[in-house]
Amino acid sequence: MAAIQFVNVSKQYPGTTAPAVDNITLEIPEGSIVVLLGPSGCGKTTLLKMVNRLHEPTSGKILLDGVDIQSIPVNQLRRNIGYVIQQVGLFPHLSIAKNIAVVPDLLGWDRQRINQRVNELLDLVHLPLDFRNRYPAQLSGGQQQRVGLARALAADPEVMLMDEPFGAIDAITRESLQDQLLELQRRLKKTILFVTHDVEEALKLADEIIVLDKGRLVQKDTPCNLLANPAGDFVRQLLNTDDRIRQLSLVRVETVMKPLDSTIHSNRLPRVPLGTDLKRVLSLMLSPASDTVLVCQEGNPIGYITFEELRKVGCLSA
């Protein structure tokens, strides 16, 4: 079942002539990262914030695991959804440990369980345990957002909403945070709705990208299909498909690979682990002149990519 369903959702702010979100029907599959992509004012943040009811739709409804979110008490709903925002919004008067513990605290966990969970989470986001007693102002922007991520994950929610979480962070730190999010996601399998206006970020993180323009859904596709078959000029312009190698470097093998079948049996094929980008795959194909590369999970082949597949992603839209 889809984790989040939007059914004919529209939102018009009072005093505006055009709706911010215009009749969107959409399913967000469980356990995947779905990126809402579009220029500012396209309605992506509004759409996101309707899921935890920071905004209420003008019409239509939103279902969470099949349940209409209007039927859930609003604070209970929010405590069960992880929420990460661009400005981080850590509480400056609370220690890092207390910041992370906010939702477990609201849920009434006992002290020992909270303590243990805080340690787990610091570990999960690669922060040292002695950060527990520091304060937000003592951390760098990247470290603060790691705490923001830990805080959102604290009560182990099924669904995470991330509103341009890495938008205010320098490029190098941003990349490492993106890598870390992917690594976390491989382990945790959350349903993540992620808003960004950064195309490269979308290509890199998304299992599926939803392109929005003026509140309307323009295209919903995997990063590869989006690159290969952009639906119209708006998407083509947004993706700006000139630097194909750069784009290949952002797309991960798991979004392209086909499951292993009996036609593939060479043990001498080059192998790459899950999470490898397509640029790396391309260079492997170039060097030993192999048309096929195996994708492995913990050393065992689980799928393959052929040069033909790669070409579809890399140049078809030209």
Binding site: N75, L77, R78, Y83, Q87, G89, F91, P92
Partner: peptide
């Protein structure tokens, strides 16, 4: 008060009273 802090508090499911006591007043 910084709007992002208040939004985070709301987004995490604090009631208006909890926001006031735990976040807004101390700040």
């Amino acid at each position: 008060l910084e709007p992002a802090i208040i939004e985070a508090a709301r987004g995490m499911g604090m009631s208006a009273f909890q926001r006031l006591i735990k976040v807004e007043f101390p700040l």
